[in-house]
């Protein structure tokens, strides 16, 4: 099942959502940008990364906030790539924001009177 969300609406997702997903992707294993974008696309069915390039400003923001660290290495296809790893600060944010996210989505779902696993809506293919 894939959900089509127009790019204008994708831009309206809550701030910090992409950063949280990045932290989740690299929580267990270090990844390069392309692999992170693939992982996020798979996890969100392409909802958030309308353009793959939008991942990189978020990665660099997380580097600036010292929630990620980066090192150049070689990808599985033997190409030069920059690998990202979560730091203790990033780990702390991931735990905190995941709990917050769960509380907020549950509260909003309750307020909107929808179940967390809704039935297919128009536009869902």
């Amino acid at each position: 099942m894939s959900i089509h969300i127009p790019s204008e609406e994708a831009a309206q997702v809550p701030p910090g959502t992409l950063e949280l997903l990045i932290l989740r992707c690299v929580a267990d294993v270090s990844m390069h940008g392309w692999a992170i974008s693939r992982s996020i696309k798979d996890r969100t069915q392409g909802t958030l990364l309308v353009e793959e390039g939008s991942l990189y400003p978020a990665l660099h923001r997380l580097l600036r906030l010292r929630q990620l660290s980066a090192a150049w290495g070689t990808s599985e296809n033997n190409r030069k790539a920059r690998f990202y790893r979560i730091t203790s600060r990033g780990q702390a944010r991931l735990v905190r924001d995941t709990a917050l996210w769960a509380r907020v989505t549950a509260a909003v779902a309750k307020a909107l009177d929808v179940s967390p696993n809704p039935s297919p809506l128009p536009g869902v293919t």
Binding site: W34, G53, Y56, S75, N77, K80, R82
Partner: peptide
């Protein structure tokens, strides 16, 4: 320069 290299690496990976 590093940013450019990184974005180019992503594009090369996608192309491949």
């Amino acid at each position: 320069q590093e940013i450019r290299e990184e974005l180019e690496a992503h594009l090369r990976e996608s192309e491949a």
